[in-house]
Structure formats: C-alpha cells, structure tokens
C-alpha cells in the first residue's frame, strides 16, 4: 500500500511539466518575458559565436593565406549579415545585462520601471548597433 503510493507519486513527479511547458496555449507573451527569452537566446548565440571569434584570431595568427580564406567568408553577404546580427545580439545582451545588474541592486522592480527599462534596452541596443557600424566605417 505504502509502496504503491510512493510509486504513483514518483510517476506523477516524472510526468510533471518542466520549465518552458506553459509556452503556447497557456501563456500570453509580454515585453518583459520576451526580453527575458531574448537575453538567454542572444547569450547562447554569442556563446556559439565565440567559436567564430576564435577562428578569426587563429586564422590571423596562422598567416596571410588562412587569414585571406577567413576574410573571404567573413566578407560574403551571409558573413556580413551574420556579423551584423551578432553585433546587435551582443549590444542587446550588454544593455539588458546592465538592466539585470540594476535589478541586482534591488532597484526598478515595479511594473512601470520594468517596462520602461525594457523599452529603453530595445531602443538603446538598436541605436548602439547603428552607431557602431556608422562610426566604424565613417572614421
């Protein structure tokens, strides 16, 4: 009897929904949650991007031939698009990371400020991305 209850209980625990279960039919997206997902996704993307950064410096260190091979891929249209997306991902993660650091000081947790910070982060990440590319090519 006792074992039976334990068994059904562990089966229940095994079948319980895990973290992102509520996405889809049970969950209405809002700015705050979308930005939170975006923080994780850009973080993961940037982690994968470190592989390309390592290849970039290794190709340069290996010599002119390998650097030319890498540069050819990097300067192709898909390469440039990826690089532009990477720059936004980094700047978004950076801006929203600062938002997280502010939260760590127990500030800006009320509804008004979480939304205000969210809109600010999105706007700032776009402005910074544009600024980086304009300054990089203008000077």
């Amino acid at each position: 009897m006792a074992e039976n209850t334990t068994a059904s209980k562990s089966a229940q625990i095994a079948a319980r929904p895990l973290s992102p279960f509520m996405l889809g039919p049970y969950y209405k997206f809002q700015l705050t949650s979308v930005l939170s997902f975006a923080h994780r996704l850009t973080g993961l993307g940037l982690s994968m991007g470190t592989v390309l950064i390592a290849i970039w410096v290794l190709a340069a260190a290996a010599g002119p031939w390998s650097y030319a091979q890498f540069a050819q891929v990097a300067r192709s249209i898909p390469g440039e698009v990826l690089l532009f997306a990477w720059s936004w991902a980094l700047l978004y993660h950076l801006c929203n990371g600062i938002r997280h650091l502010v939260w760590d000081t127990v500030h800006g947790f009320d509804l008004k400020n979480t939304y205000l910070g969210g809109y600010l982060v999105v706007a700032l990440s776009l402005v910074l991305t544009a600024a980086v590319w304009i300054v990089a090519f203008a000077f």
């Binding site: 540069a71 990097a74 300067r75 690089l83 720059s87 980094l90 600062i98 650091l101 990089a136 090519f137």
Partner: peptide, 22 residues
C-alpha cells in the same frame, strides 16, 4: 561588469577591422 567596456570596444573593433587586410 568587466565586459561592459571590453565588449563595447570589441564589437566596435570587429565592425572596423573585419574588413582590414592582413
């Protein structure tokens, strides 16, 4: 915290130097 200035500098440098010759 360390990455705030470092990453800002790095993304700008990449934007600028990814078209640099050898």
């Amino acid at each position: 915290l360390a990455l705030i200035p470092l990453a800002l500098w790095f993304v700008f440098s990449i934007a600028r130097y990814h078209v640099a010759d050898y």
